[in-house]
């Protein structure tokens, strides 16, 4: 464990909690892409299948359970409890254009052609594009609630910190995983224009609104 990975995990945890609290407290999922949340639930499900087969640490197990629990709770709040506030018209990204290519790629490019490894690879590739429906929705509505921008900032920051973690691990431990690194770079790059808007607008107290 190193400082980049720890702050990365905490940033990821913060994002998940911020979103869950936002929906729960405001009793509304307006502006939130349910499709992205389903993709994240799928990412955690396919990545953490080893939850019960290999024990790494209490921290690792607890965080995995929290991530999976919050992901499904968020999907439940969006599609069941606060379904009336779900903005389906603007959440129109065709996720099959993500899942199918990612599924194909994970079968073609992986470290080991075993079910668990292919599912892990699928989750890594999927996570790198899972935020697209949410970013697409914001571009369609032309704006985002400030709390939603904080959620997105923490979520984008987490994988950016993981990039530093991989540099650290390569330098000090001689380990690196090209699949995770390439997907992590793609994932972080997808947030760049949002990061720019967040820093230039939200941090200056303005509302995030895109030139429609």
């Amino acid at each position: 464990m190193n400082i980049f990975r720890l702050t990365g995990d905490l940033s990821h945890l913060a994002a998940i909690i911020i979103l869950l609290l936002k929906i729960w407290k405001s009793r509304s999922c307006a502006g939130i892409s349910g499709k992205s949340q389903i993709l994240f639930a799928l990412v955690f499900t396919t990545r953490y299948l080893d939850l019960f087969t290999s024990f790494i640490s209490l921290y690792n197990t607890c965080m995995k359970l929290i991530y999976i629990g919050c992901a499904y709770a968020t999907v439940y709040l969006i599609y069941a409890k606060f379904r009336a506030t779900y903005d389906g018209n603007h959440d129109s990204f065709r996720v099959e254009f993500l899942v199918v290519p990612v599924g194909g790629l994970s079968v073609l490019i992986n470290h080991d052609f075993s079910p668990l490894e292919i599912l892990w690879t699928f989750s890594i590739y999927l996570e790198s594009v899972a935020i697209l429906p949410q970013l697409f929705m914001i571009s369609k509505t032309g704006e985002a609630e400030t709390i939603t921008t904080h959620y997105l900032f923490c979520l984008g920051l987490y994988r950016a910190l993981y990039l530093f973690n991989w540099i650290w691990r390569f330098y000090f431990e001689g380990f690196f995983d090209m699949i995770a690194i390439v997907a992590g770079v793609v994932q972080t790059v997808l947030y760049c224009d949002f990061f720019y808007l967040y820093v230039t607008k939200v941090l200056k107290g303005k509302k995030l609104s895109l030139p429609a």
């Binding site: 995990d9 790494i56 690792n60 965080m63 995995k64 380990f175």
Partner: peptide, 10 residues
């Protein structure tokens, strides 16, 4: 194997 090492990440 070395790659398996990274599976200690979330």
């Amino acid at each position: 194997d070395e790659e398996g090492k990274l599976k200690d990440e979330l």
